[in-house]
């Protein structure tokens, strides 16, 4: 971008902020934010709940898939590969629409799980499956990174493959998996915002509801953006901290 163009862009951004906050009366804006803050925080709470549920499930799916992909069975490897590729090569939003609304169109899932709980269960599972596809690759790389000698030593004292995985390989692999896993968790938090378009209440959906009654998109989106930023930035910082610590550990 040329200096002139970037100058214009910068100026217009500054102008928008000034107009938003100063000229149209910042006191009014602040009051709107304050009035609706409890509701936004309620949304944030739901965002965090969905994130935690999705991350825990995603790690479980990822671990199972990684072990399948590393297994000797061609069938298991095949299933794992299909799952990973399908979920990595289609947009999360499409996956959500398909599983929450598409499936509901051909199967009586709403009767099975309840009209109100099905979308929530399905959306959380879809999010977990989506992130799980990425996490399985993180876990697989972590397992492959463990020195072969460690496995041989475990075998030489009579441990089975399962015992070796559980007591020797995974604990060592997990240590190097922590930083990328924390990163993927940050990604998962951001991805929960895609639950809004399918009608599940979390922070973004809350924001849209508030805006529809207050007509203050600028102030509300700024606040929601800041809340996401604080949440995810602190997690990324934590990942960076862990990464530095692991490097120190491994001298």
């Amino acid at each position: 971008m040329s200096p002139l163009a970037s100058g214009i862009v910068t100026k217009s951004i500054v102008r928008v902020i000034i107009q938003g906050f100063l000229f149209r009366g910042e006191a009014v804006k602040l009051q709107v934010v304050l009035d609706n803050f409890p509701q936004i925080m309620e949304g944030l709470k739901l965002t965090i709940y969905y994130s935690i549920a999705a991350i825990i499930l995603a790690v479980i799916f990822g671990l199972i898939t990684a072990l399948m992909k590393l297994s000797k069975s061609k069938v298991l490897r095949g299933f794992a590969t299909v799952y990973i590729e399908v979920f990595r090569s289609t947009p999360l939003l499409v996956q959500l629409f398909f599983i929450v609304f598409g499936l509901a169109g051909v199967l009586p899932v709403n009767e099975w799980f309840g009209q109100r709980s099905y979308p929530i269960i399905a959306a959380t599972l879809t999010l977990a499956l989506h992130e799980g596809a990425y996490i399985s690759e993180i876990i697989r790389a972590g397992i492959l990174g463990v020195d072969r000698g460690q496995k041989e030593a475990a075998a030489s004292i009579g441990m089975t493959e399962l015992q070796t995985m559980r007591h020797v390989v995974l604990p060592q692999a997990f240590k190097r998996m922590i930083p990328p896993l924390v990163n993927q968790s940050a990604q998962t938090i951001k991805d929960t915002s895609l639950l809004a378009p399918i009608g599940i209440i979390e922070m973004v959906y809350r924001g849209q509801i508030i805006i529809s009654s207050t007509f203050e998109p600028f102030a509300i989106w700024v606040v929601i953006g800041i809340l996401y930023f604080i949440l995810i930035f602190s997690i990324s910082q934590f990942a960076g901290y862990l990464e530095r610590r692991m490097q120190l550990d491994q001298r």
């Binding site: 000698g149 460690q150 041989e152 030489s156 060592q172 240590k175």
Partner: peptide, 13 residues
């Protein structure tokens, strides 16, 4: 059958 390796291979963790 016990075994000792050239690189020791102690469990690092």
């Amino acid at each position: 059958v016990g075994m000792c390796f050239q690189q020791f291979n102690l469990f690092k963790h």
